[in-house]
Design a binder for these strands. Structure first.
Lengths: 198, 198
DNA sequence: CAGCTGACAGATTTCAATATCTGTCATTCC
DNA sequence: GGAATGACAGATATTGAAATCTGTCAGCTG
């Protein structure tokens, strides 16, 4: 069963939209382009997505979820102590973001404009990520290696403090030579701040 | 001696430029406007500043230096222990940036575009600020309340970790209700990370 | 009749002609 | 003679008309 001339589903529209965005970038991609790529009229696309923004949001959500999923293994890694998990998580997040910025610049640009507009998908993504962080912090508290008043608040603080290494606004600086060391310096400080005393 | 019809100095040009920027904003301010405000031809302005970018840089530098100066009192405050100095410094920097963003939106916008372009003045400003941070961290190490491998590296990490609260790209979020608390949560973590054990 | 179409109004974008600006420099003015 | 001027070339910004796009919907189609 070839995907062409199959019934039009939200999923097929998302795939086509991602392809169009990848080719044209967020500024030039139109829903007419998407419809053309699918061989349907643009009115049909509006049957599945209320607005262009909703479509862009849905594509971005799928794309961001892939990053989220790739980190979930670290959160659940019982063979690593919480501190190692935390370090691996930050390193993994940074690597994932940097890779996306480099390999899929057009989709990354889409994500960036959505981020500056506080799009729904990005808000959810941030909530997802801080949720993962909360679980790691909680694990550390349970194990007695971390101390903190409220894991969720601490998770947000950790996320804010490392913004330079995952916020799309800083993407340009991720290619500079010393960045890995800068991330490590920040994470070192934060981990020390989390550790329980004696 | 009224400032008008006095000889044309770099200082007078800077004042006029700041005024023009304040009124028109960075996008619409031209060196012709500056010259008109001074009652001279624009060629004369070029005698004192090689390019428009140099002029904009100089105005921004003056403006940023005022923030720097307002913080120097905290760095030298011997009545405060290093930890209190660090907290006061971050609070002060955040308050200063937020006030500028709110009270002088046009000049702040000038600063923002310069920041994204890695302008000379901004680079110097960051170096100045991390220099102040280094002095505070060093004071803490000397007093035995802080531990760290290298104060300058740690100062940079502290600066990066608090970017959300001084980087102009985040200015929009500085008006949201919970920000003060978010800054405090981050600084709490960082200060804990700096503290010497037992 | 559920899903798709294509014509449509209003909003947005493109494009090219026009106007303004930047930076230089030969000349003028005190 | 050192400082200021203003005309100038090339770069950049503005503008308004034309083209395209978004989102809707009455009607077609299988």
């Amino acid at each position: 069963m070839p995907p062409t001339s199959e019934t039009l589903t939200a999923e097929r529209i998302l795939e086509a939209t991602e392809e169009v965005l990848r080719r044209h970038g967020p500024a030039k991609a139109t829903v007419v382009d998407v419809a053309r790529a699918l061989g349907v009229s643009h009115g049909s696309v509006y049957r599945h997505f209320r607005t262009k923004a909703a479509l862009r949001d849905a594509v971005t959500k799928k794309w961001l979820d892939r990053t989220f999923d790739s980190l979930s293994g670290i959160v659940a890694a019982d063979d690593l102590d919480p501190e190692a998990r935390l370090r691996a998580w930050f390193t993994g997040l940074f690597a994932a973001k940097r890779r996306k910025a480099g390999d899929e610049p057009e989709l990354f640009a889409t994500f960036s404009v959505l981020a500056t507009e506080n799009g729904e998908a990005v808000g959810q993504h941030i909530a997802d990520l801080t949720g993962q962080l909360t679980r790691i912090v909680q694990a550390g508290v349970d194990a007695g290696t971390f101390t903190c008043a409220d894991p969720a608040t601490t998770a947000r603080a950790l996320f804010h403090a490392t913004g330079r290494f995952h916020d799309p606004g800083y993407a340009r600086e991720w290619e500079q030579p010393g960045v890995e060391g800068e991330l490590e310096a920040v994470v070192d400080l934060l981990v020390r701040g989390l550790r329980a005393r004696d």
